[in-house]
């Protein structure tokens, strides 16, 4: 069984973890086009190479980020999400634009 090095709990069987999908940047939900939003929601790069993914250590409820090579399945690095998400995220209060209902 594959071993995943958890930044909080150390190396553990992969069965202790839940995959949370690729780390993706959300387009501005107010101002992006329908197509941009659909791509964000539905499309996955699914690339052969290094991907950045969310992983949850279920027993400790700890989400972290892993860089993994999808061809070799090698886990290159794992780290706390605060390395990427440093700032409090705000959503603007502007009303949705008309294109939404187009």
């Amino acid at each position: 069984m594959k071993i995943m090095p958890c930044p909080l709990n150390g190396p553990r069987n992969i069965s202790e973890f839940v995959h949370g999908g690729e780390v993706r940047e959300m387009p501005n939900p107010i101002s992006c086009t329908d197509r941009e939003w659909a791509e964000y929601v539905f499309y996955s790069d699914n690339q052969a190479g290094i991907v950045t993914e969310w992983w949850l250590h279920a027993a400790s409820g700890y989400w972290f980020i892993a860089e993994r090579h999808t061809v070799t399945d090698e886990i290159i690095r794992t780290y706390d999400p605060s390395e990427i998400f440093k700032e409090r995220v705000e959503f603007s209060a502007e009303p949705a634009t008309e294109e939404v209902s187009a």
Partner: peptide, 20 residues
């Protein structure tokens, strides 16, 4: 639901404690 909440707040970084 709990996992999704935790994951969202790992990104939003709001000052809130989430407990199942």
């Amino acid at each position: 639901v709990y996992r999704e909440m935790m994951k969202w707040n790992a990104q939003w970084r709001l000052d809130v404690d989430i407990t199942n």
